[in-house]
């Protein structure tokens, strides 16, 4: 066999091998990507979600129906921070006062979520 032919064959085989390996990893990557986007889409679609989070009451605005909470991580929604949440009914706010450590339920279809229950802890 002529040497350059042998070389060509080997190089072709190498390219095919590298290509196959790249395709294998690429396919796997693509599958993971798809699963992730599906999960994201599910999160964004009209499915109602619910979290139970702990935090501290920092301020109450009865006239607006808003309660400001310093809260821990809300997985898949937001990291720990201080912010205001709508309350589902005025009664919820009346049960707590500023400075209380609380456990609260956040419920709704993103981004329309509201505090549905709240209870003092400790």
């Amino acid at each position: 066999m002529r040497a350059w032919k042998a070389v060509l064959l080997i190089d072709l085989a190498l390219i095919v091998g590298v290509g196959w390996g790249y395709a294998f990893w690429g396919l796997r990557e693509g599958r993971l990507e798809r699963e992730l986007s599906e999960a994201r889409a599910a999160a964004a679609s009209g499915i109602e979600r619910r979290w139970v989070v702990e935090g501290v009451v920092r301020a109450i605005f009865p006239e607006l129906g808003v309660i400001v909470l310093t809260h821990g991580d809300i997985p898949g929604y937001m990291p720990a921070m201080t912010m205001g949440f709508r309350v589902a009914s005025p009664k919820i706010q009346e049960a707590v006062s500023v400075g209380d450590a609380v456990r609260f339920t956040l419920q709704g279809v993103l981004p329309n979520v509201a505090v549905t229950t709240i209870e003092k802890i400790k």
Partner: peptide, 16 residues
């Protein structure tokens, strides 16, 4: 440990 309550509801203190 009850510092937030002692600061009271007014004015609203929202920083940590």
């Amino acid at each position: 440990p009850d510092a937030i309550r002692r600061l009271g509801p007014d004015p609203r203190v929202l920083f940590p």
